[in-house]
């Protein structure tokens, strides 16, 4: 009985964790390249969920097309935000870029509050409530869909970053910004790409979570953004596999925490784990060791 409960929570945690991972990837990629904690990322995820919802309900698109639409929309939004709010601050202190990001975040959720109000909107039911048996646990069709989509997107990202020219340029830029520029890489363009990719992954995460919890609301980016950021740091900020691992791990641990009766402390679980891990391994689970240079 206990064993079955744990396996069941493992399945739930894996589903939740893969959505955290999708959001965490955007944090980690942006941080890896311009060392900015992009606090507007949670709001991009929220906007993605709303765009997906709009395309499914008002435009009657099918789910996959709506998801692609939301991803494309947020891609453009990510590029525009970087142009307007971060690029002018590239050469000033990191703190001013951070405050600018917070400004964007406040702007976006207030805008959505004005348009949609604070009440959550329900996502139309697309998947039937059928549960597939896994022997000891059950998995719903929706959970299966979330896992499959997240896995596909992450494999796609891995391919993009490891095997293509753009990916190579991204890795070079994150390793050494100035040297990459000297090697003839258009750094500004690479940063735009990074924001575009990160934002589209967040949008996909937004649509998936909107369906999973059956609620889309303007403040949904706040907790999800903070937790995904925690996941990115847990995995080692700047590391793409780290963000995936951190996201899945946090999701699983959170659900296990709920299972053992810590549900009222649910939002504290992620951060407690984060602080504990940082004390033992400051660079996160898969982070690079940073050489201190004089």
């Amino acid at each position: 009985m206990i064993f079955e409960l744990i396996v069941q929570q493992l399945v739930n945690g894996l589903t939740l964790g893969s959505t955290y991972a999708l959001i965490a990837l955007g944090y980690t990629m942006v941080y890896g390249i311009i060392t900015l904690i992009n606090f507007a990322h949670g709001e991009i995820y929220m906007v993605g969920a709303f765009v997906g919802l709009y395309l499914v309900t008002a435009m009657q698109w099918n789910l996959l097309a709506a998801m692609a639409g939301a991803m494309a929309f947020c891609m453009v939004m990510g590029i525009v935000i970087e142009r307007v709010a971060y690029r002018p601050l590239r050469r000033s202190t990191r703190l001013s870029a951070l405050i600018s990001a917070i400004g964007v975040s406040i702007f976006l959720y207030s805008l959505m509050l004005l348009i949609r109000g604070a009440q959550p909107t329900r996502f139309p039911k697309i998947f039937p409530d059928r549960m597939l048996s896994l022997g000891v646990a059950e998995i719903s069709l929706l959970q299966l869909f979330i896992l499959a989509v997240s896995a596909l997107l992450m494999i796609g990202l891995h391919y993009l970053v490891q095997k293509t020219r753009v990916g190579k340029a991204m890795r070079a830029t994150s390793q050494d910004y100035d040297t990459a520029a000297l090697m003839g890489i258009d750094v500004n363009q690479i940063i735009s790409y990074t924001f575009a990719i990160g934002s589209s992954l967040a949008a996909a995460g937004g649509v998936l979570v909107g369906m999973y919890f059956n609620a889309v609301f303007p403040l949904m980016g706040y907790q999800a953004g903070l937790k995904a950021f925690a996941a990115a740091v847990l995995g080692g900020i700047g590391s793409i596999p780290g963000a995936m691992l951190g996201g899945v791990l946090l999701g699983v641990l959170e659900m296990l925490g709920v299972a053992i009766g810590l549900s009222s402390y649910r939002n504290a679980i992620a951060f407690t784990i984060l602080i504990l891990v940082l004390l033992i391994r400051p660079t996160g689970l898969m982070g690079r060791q940073i050489q201190r240079k004089v």
Partner: peptide, 22 residues
Amino acid sequence: RDYRMLFYGALLVAMMVFRPNG
């Protein structure tokens, strides 16, 4: 009224862009 926080957010971005050192 309702546009308060919207302006506050935009103001933060604008202030940082035009006066990054405060």
